[in-house]
């Protein structure tokens, strides 16, 4: 049996929305190079809609695939929809991840939330702190 599903391999080999958005409305970076994964998400937001999203990822195959899938899942959606995206939804959309790789989908969820938090901060929009991860580094390996 292959390590990853066909879908993971497809998103890993041909990642969607790779790159940078200059003057992005929100940028979120999570993870830690020490642990082997860092994800950075860039958002372009207009009228509460995610008009564009790009990512850069340093990490394993499933980290790159999770970032790619997560960007696809939120592109064109409302901020509220993006805020409710869970790591489980990312993993399911990829036809599953091996148990030891589930943290990659968590990073994708957190990177999106951090980018939205950045958007709120930049625009002075009030928000409920509890909806954002308070950790700006990874929590899966203790570094």
């Amino acid at each position: 049996m292959a390590l990853y599903s066909e879908k993971v391999m497809d998103h890993f080999r041909n990642p969607r929305n790779v790159g940078v958005i200059e003057n992005a409305d929100g940028v979120g970076e999570v993870g830690n190079a020490k642990c082997g994964d860092i994800m950075k998400i860039y958002l372009k937001i207009e009228n509460d809609i995610i008009e564009d999203v790009k990512f850069e990822t340093f990490g394993c195959g499933s980290a790159i695939a999770s970032s790619s899938m997560a960007t696809e899942l939120i592109k064109g959606k409302s901020i509220n929809d993006a805020l409710t995206l869970t790591n489980k939804a990312v993993a399911e959309a990829l036809d599953g991840l091996p148990p030891v790789k589930m943290h990659c989908s968590v990073l994708a969820e957190e990177a999106i939330r951090m980018a939205l938090k950045d958007y709120y901060d930049k625009n002075g929009i009030a928000y409920d702190c509890s909806i954002f991860p308070d950790c700006d580094s990874c929590d899966h390996c203790g570094h």
Partner: peptide
């Protein structure tokens, strides 16, 4: 790991000391 997987796509079998 991503390095190994892409090398494998190009037909090269190698290994890595990455945690992944």
């Amino acid at each position: 790991e991503s390095l190994l997987l892409l090398l494998d796509d190009k037909g090269v079998c190698a290994s890595s000391g990455s945690a992944c």
